[in-house]
Simulated scan of single mutants.
Amino acid sequence: MTSQQYTAAAPVRRRAYWRTFASVTVVLVAVLLAHQHWPVLRSGALRLAVADRGWLLVGAAATVLTWVCSSLAQQGAVARPLPAGRLVAAQFAASAANHVLPAGLGAGAVNLRFLMRCGLTAARAATALGVKAAASALVRGALIAVLALASPGVLQVPRMPPVGLAVLLGPAVVVALLLASPLGPRCRRALAAVRADIREVHARPSRAAALWGGSLAFALLHAGVLIAVTQAVALPLAPAEVALLYLAASSAAALLPTPGGLGSLDAALALALTASGATADAAASAVLGYRLLTVWLPLVPGLLVLGWLVRRRAL
C-alpha cells in the first residue's frame, strides 16, 4: 500500500474502530443490565413459554412478510427490474448480516453488492439504498405523527437538551459546510445525480408505489410482530398504542450503532412498554418474543442464505 492510499484509508479505519468500540460498549452494557435484571428476564421467558401459540404464529407470518416488503421497497428505488427471487433472498440475508455488523452496515453492504451484481454502478446502487432509507424514515415519521394524534398521551416527547439538538442538526450543518467548501461543485454534481435518479423512479407510478407501499408495509408489519407478541402474552395495551411505542422506540434505538439494535432497541422497547403500564415481566416477555421471531430464529438460516448467494456470485 502506498503512502497516499494509507492516508486515504486511515479515516475509514478510524470510523470503523469507533463504530466497533461503540457497538461493543452498548452490548456490554446490555449484558450487564441483563445480568442485573435476570429475575425479570427469567419470569418474562417463562411467561413467553406459555403464551398463545396462535398469536405467535401470526407474528412469525408477519416477520416473513417483512422480507417481501423490503424487497418491494428496494425494487421501487431502482428503475431497472431486479430478479425477484434473488432480491427476496438478498433481503433475508441482509437482515441476518444486519445483526452481525454494527449500525446497519451488514444490510447496507449486502444490498449494495447485490445491486452492483445486477448491473448498477456503485454510485447508483448507493443512491438506491439512500432513496429506500429516506422513504423508510419519512414513512415512519408520518406513522408516528398519525398514531400520536390517534392515541394522545401515549407518547411523551421529552425536552430536547442542547446535545440532542446538536446531534439532530449535525448532518444538516455538515452538508452546508461541504457545499460551501472547495468540494462544493463535486457535491452539487453528486446531488444532481441523486435528484435525477429520484425523478426517474417517481416517473414510473409502479416504482413509486412499490417504494412507498413497501416501506409503509415494512414498518407496519414489524409493528404487527410486536402487537402479535403482546397479544400472545396478554399484555393490556391497545394495538395502536403498541405500534406507536414500537415505531418511537425503534427510531430512537437507531441512533445507537449496535448490530440490529441489540441492547438499544431491547431497552427502548422495554422502557416504552413499562412506561405505558405494562408490568416488567410482561414487557420483558414481549421484547423477548419480538426478538425471537425477528432475530434469533431467522439468524442461522439467513446466514446460510448469505453464504449461498456469495457462492452463486449473486453478491
Rank of each mutant, 00 (worst) to 15 (best):
R204E: 15
G307C: 11
P102G: 05
W38I: 06
G184P: 13
A228Q: 01
L165V: 03
V58M: 10
V40G: 10
P161M: 08
S251E: 00
T279G: 15
G277H: 06
P158G: 07
R291C: 08
L138Q: 08
A62K: 05
W296R: 03
T258D: 07
A45H: 12
Q75T: 11
A133S: 14
G130P: 03
G153I: 04
L41S: 01
D266M: 01
A209D: 04
A122F: 12
G224T: 00
R311K: 12
C118V: 04
A134C: 11
A272D: 07
T20S: 13
A272G: 14
L303H: 05
L262W: 03
W18I: 14
A223S: 11
G59F: 00
V100T: 13
A270V: 02
R14Y: 10
L28R: 01
G130K: 10
L303E: 05
S70W: 02
V300K: 08
A93H: 03
G85D: 04
L101A: 09
A97I: 01
V201C: 15
L101D: 00
L41Q: 03
G141D: 14
V163W: 14
L293S: 07
V31H: 05
L169W: 09
V26F: 14
L292G: 10
V194D: 07
A232D: 02
A10Q: 13
L178M: 12
L65D: 04
A209W: 11
L288W: 08
R42N: 14
R113V: 09
T258F: 09
V88T: 07
L256V: 15
R42Y: 09
I198D: 00
A77D: 00
L183Y: 11
W67I: 03
A93M: 06
L129I: 14
P162A: 14
V31I: 14
L72Q: 10
P161N: 08
M116G: 08
L169Y: 10
M160N: 07
V68C: 08
I144V: 15
L41R: 00
L46A: 15
C118I: 02
A272I: 06
V26A: 15
A10L: 15
A96W: 05
A97W: 04
P257I: 00
R15M: 09
Y246A: 03
Q231N: 06
A278T: 04
A30Q: 06
S181I: 00
S151Q: 10
R113L: 11
L237P: 02
P11D: 00
A272L: 10
T279V: 04
A180Q: 12
